[in-house]
Design a protein around this nucleic acid. Structure first.
Length: 538
DNA sequence: ACTGGGTTGAGGTT
DNA sequence: AACCTCAACCCAGT
């Protein structure tokens, strides 16, 4: 049994030293500090049945990003005279055992709004409180406290960005200095009989050799986050003129955005620190862009989705979600698989899906393109299926933001202009007429002339032969014809909207079944859409 | 009941 | 690069 008063700092997200209120409080006035990370097998252990390498919950790129973040955190803690204690098991069981074993009087961890953590944290808090242990769980992942905003709005979250911004106002801590550096931390006490390990490697977790070209180019960790932040804000003109919708989704050698999202997701970077750095830049320039398109605007989008997600039961599904339109999506796993496996036959769509698999990151507008294509634009597959794929493969996948954006793009909530469909051909072409992005991520098309690279099935056979890429053999034909299928999707969306209006949003499983039947009562039209119009090869 | 704004469509014309 | 038109809105907030 360890002696004296001890604090336990439980890291989950918030994998950083700077601006970490829970860590600061844990370190204050204590003899021993135990910084802990618990490896939840469900999140970390290999799942041989998953469609991509990784655990049941996360693809390998995100697991790797997390491990890199933990190694960096451990290094930083060591510089401060401490270290990271890594434990394995069901987190609440592991923690409650540690609390007893180490004679802890103070338990600190960052407040989290995700349903998974809300349930877990309640268990841990109850356990700790019953044992007379002080629990400190501050809000430090977001700019605002989502619960405060919901309360301010009378118990329901604001459902538009503008009303959210108005309601939120200035962040209360905006002008107060944040704690950016710590000079030292209390020692780690005796760990008793608890099984402590170093941060495991990917191999130690049971993952074999993975293909070299599937490594994300983005490295995890607070050090990397702060370096990236410094590089991003060094160009003051770029920061001051940043407009998200004007970014180029096909830029990959130098992405058009900061790529700070994965660092914000794991809390390697404090959103409040990022916010203050941006305000510093704004103060030193004549004019700057504003929300929603500015960089500060992006941080507010993040808080917006966190707030709506916290205040909306069943936010991550269609059924029982009061802000989600009930739409008779089809349940076609065949179509889903072509999308997921980057073989839709639309090079712009497939290249983006390859970037998702290999990098775990793609530009916001690229995400829009493929999300629209899967759901209301072409395939009419349920947004929850696409959400699952993103949630697994993105290194920055964030429960509130990912679900919020899928609701948005599928015209299920927030955004309702279902007539605006991204063209899988012309949208990418306007940014990258030469098709360099496609050539990079789909090397099979690297010699296709630019006239045909967005629609290779229209290339004469002689051109296909010369490019060493025969469509239908080396690269697939389009899974559906965009022109007719997008029209069909518009029709289905219009029907679904009418139904939702008629039934005032209370749409039963039976209503959806009937709706599906009704929508498919046009066999000739259906047959027509299945055929793919293309120039005869040769 | 009304108002007004909706981060980022496509394809055409000026 | 800015501005229509397409076919036609939707809904959150007040």
């Amino acid at each position: 049994m360890a002696s004296g008063s001890g604090s336990l700092m439980w890291f989950r997200k918030g994998l950083r030293i700077h601006d970490n209120p829970a860590l600061e409080y844990a370190a204050k006035g204590t003899r021993f500090l135990y910084p802990v990370f618990v490896i939840d097998p469900h999140y970390m252990e290999p799942d041989p049945n998953a469609f991509s390498p990784g655990s049941p919950r996360a693809g390998l790129n995100r697991i790797r990003f997390l491990l890199e973040s933990l190694v960096d955190l451990d290094l930083s803690l060591k510089k401060l005279g401490s270290r990271l204690l890594v434990l394995k098991g069901e987190p609440s069981e592991v923690l409650i055992r540690c609390l007893k074993e180490w004679d802890i009087t103070k338990l600190c961890f960052e407040y989290d709004t995700e349903p998974y953590y809300q349930a877990l944290d309640l268990k841990v808090k109850t356990g700790a409180s019953t044992a007379g242990i002080e629990v400190f769980s501050p809000v430090s992942h977001t700019l605002f406290n989502p619960a405060d905003i919901i309360h301010k709005n009378g118990g329901r979250p604001p459902l538009s960005y503008q009303s959210f911004v108005k309601l939120a106002g200035q962040p209360s801590w905006a002008s107060s200095p944040l704690s950016i550096t710590l000079s030292s931390l209390p020692h780690v006490g005796d760990v008793g009989s608890c099984e402590i390990s170093e941060v495991p490697t990917i191999e130690e977790l049971g993952y074999g050799e993975s293909p070299q070209d599937c490594f994300s180019p983005f490295r995890g960790g607070e050090s990397e986050a702060l370096k990236r932040l410094r590089e991003s804000i060094a160009d003051k003109v770029w920061v001051a003129t940043f407009e998200k919708p004007k970014g180029n989704p096909s830029a990959f050698l130098k992405p058009a955005t900061t790529v700070l999202s994965p660092y914000l997701k794991f809390g390697c970077l404090s959103s409040r620190y990022f916010y203050q750095c941006l305000q510093d830049v704004y103060r030193n320039v004549k004019r700057h862009t504003s929300p929603p398109v500015s960089l500060v605007g992006q941080l507010l989008w993040r808080d917006f989705f966190y707030t709506v997600a916290l205040g909306t039961p069943n936010f991550d599904q269609m059924r029982g979600n009061r802000i989600c339109k009930q739409i008779p999506w089809n349940d076609n796993d065949e179509l889903l698989a072509t999308w997921r496996e980057a073989r839709t036959g639309y090079p712009w769509i497939d290249a983006i899906m390859v970037q998702l698999c290999k990098w775990g990151w793609m530009h916001h507008l690229a995400r829009h393109s493929v999300a629209c294509f899967l759901t209301r634009g072409d395939l009419f597959v349920h947004w929850e299926k696409g959400r699952d794929v993103f949630e697994r493969l993105l290194i920055d996948s964030d429960w509130a933001i990912n679900n919020g954006n899928w609701l948005w793009l599928s015209c299920s909530s927030f955004f309702y202009q279902y007539n605006r469909i991204y063209s899988p051909i012309s949208f990418g072409k306007k940014y990258d007429p030469n098709g360099d992005y496609i050539r990079h991520f789909l090397p099979v098309l690297k010699d296709m002339p630019k006239e045909y690279i967005y629609e290779p099935w229209t290339a004469p056979l002689s051109v296909q032969t010369k490019a060493k890429c025969i469509i239908g053999r080396d690269y697939p034909k389009p899974v559906v014809p965009h022109d007719s299928e997008s029209k069909e999707c518009r029709r289905k969306m219009a029907e679904a909207y009418t139904l939702n209006q008629k039934l005032k949003g209370v749409v039963s499983e039976e209503d959806l079944k009937n709706s599906r039947r009704k929508l498919e009562e046009h066999p000739e039209q259906e047959a027509k859409t299945k055929r793919i119009r293309q120039k005869p090869v040769g």
